[in-house]
Design a protein around this nucleic acid. Structure first.
Lengths: 238, 238
DNA sequence: ACCTGAACACCGTTCAAGT
DNA sequence: ACCTGAACACCGTTCAAGT
């Protein structure tokens, strides 16, 4: 179905000029309908009625494009203003839960967030909110500074893990492989694994998630930062 | 340089029959010399003097191949038997450090481990060793069972983060982007980030790593597992 | 059962040339 | 400065046909 120039002018909204935002918007649309794996330079170019080379004026490479999509979607993570008042740690669980929620809803984003560290405004907003909550909870600033990484890295990893499990992507196979490998582990070679048995894969994702986050928060609360070598009075031998 | 059939028979060791192990060995060799991104079906097929389709008899897909390479290399992670006796938590830091060491040495492996959860014998060996050390440290079994994930997920993520930073891959750009974004963050929009300032990116990777692991261990030590809803006497409202 | 050639359906990125 | 066509150098996976 080849359309004349005039026809296509009418069907598409007059071929809007290219812009970074336009590219990202198109990418988000493709993400929603077909998933991250279809956000490719070539595909987007086709969508925008141009050649792939044109996009490189606005976007450094494919990874940067994916990161931009993530930040765009992160704009939706806000705390519900009508939520009942909650303790600081429950609120952290909530914020991280919303973050992983987005990552799980759009498979592929979590991987992208691990590969290309996000640094967009909405991601910074998330960091900001978490740091504030940690401060409210009385976590010393220096531990917040080092722990924020851990929290977000963890939330992203968990999303990756559960995201691939939820959808029927080719990847859940290995989540199951691991569960089976743990269950069937040879008692001679892996006695401790065998002893723990099913508990290694027990619990709902939510229960595990909540516990994991609390482990991190409790750990931060009780673990002092190391004293830098230069500030230490003397040294035995490292 | 086209070689006759007779020549090539002499140059290559008589074109060994295909086998899963042979494929993995070749893949490991390619990994060492050129990196994971060159372990492709087509490349390996060329290396083994056959067509890509032939490999699918022994390997499910590219991801499984990468996972097999990881497990192969994980065979090298053993505790030094001549190491001086150490406390259980220091030994855990050591084991996880060795694990991340491998992942950092071979860029791409960490990403692969996050995407495709490893389940090979050597990975199970690692799980086994860690569970044993946790037990020695007095961590209750149920918390070990849920925490082992967290430890390994974290170690893998950290390797990914620092691995991309170390090499001059196209990806370090964004690690720097994030550091700059944090430093240059607008004090109005992100007051807490601004207040913490440089401490957000302070410390050597080793110092951060050690602290992170200890946070996880301490957290596990003090955080009880949630009581399943079915075992709870009554409920206020969830 | 194992192996293969060929095909299908794509990729990212660069570059010289145009406007 | 922005945009493009065309090219370079690749991918994974399937399938019908052979041994």
């Amino acid at each position: 179905m080849t359309t004349s120039t005039t026809r296509s002018r009418r069907e598409r909204p007059a071929k809007a000029a290219l812009s970074r935002q336009g590219i990202i918007d198109t990418a988000v649309a493709v993400m929603r309908s077909e998933g991250l794996e279809h956000i490719t330079m070539r595909r987007l170019a086709a969508e925008l009625d141009t050649g792939p080379a044109s996009l490189y004026v606005y976007v450094r490479n494919t990874a940067e494009l994916h990161a931009a999509v993530l930040d765009e979607l992160l704009g939706l993570v806000g705390e519900d203003p009508h939520a009942p008042p909650a303790a600081w740690d429950d609120r952290i669980v909530g914020v991280l839960g919303a973050y992983t929620g987005i990552l799980i809803e759009y498979p592929g984003l979590a991987r992208s967030a691990l590969v290309t560290r996000p640094s967009g405004p909405n991601y910074l907003g998330l960091v900001e909110r978490l740091l504030r909550l940690l401060g409210e909870g009385g976590v010393p600033d220096d531990r917040s500074a080092w722990g924020i990484d851990l929290l977000l890295l963890f939330a992203t990893s968990i999303a990756l893990e559960h995201g691939t499990r939820r959808q029927t992507t080719p990847e859940d196979q290995d989540e199951e492989d691991l569960a089976r490998a743990l269950r069937d582990a040879d008692g001679g070679a892996y006695p401790t694994i065998t002893a723990l048995g099913d508990d290694l894969v027990s619990g709902t994702p939510d229960a595990r998630f909540g516990w994991h986050v609390r482990v991190l928060l409790e750990g931060m609360a009780v673990t002092p930062r190391p004293v830098p070598a230069s500030d230490r009075p003397r040294q035995e031998r490292p």
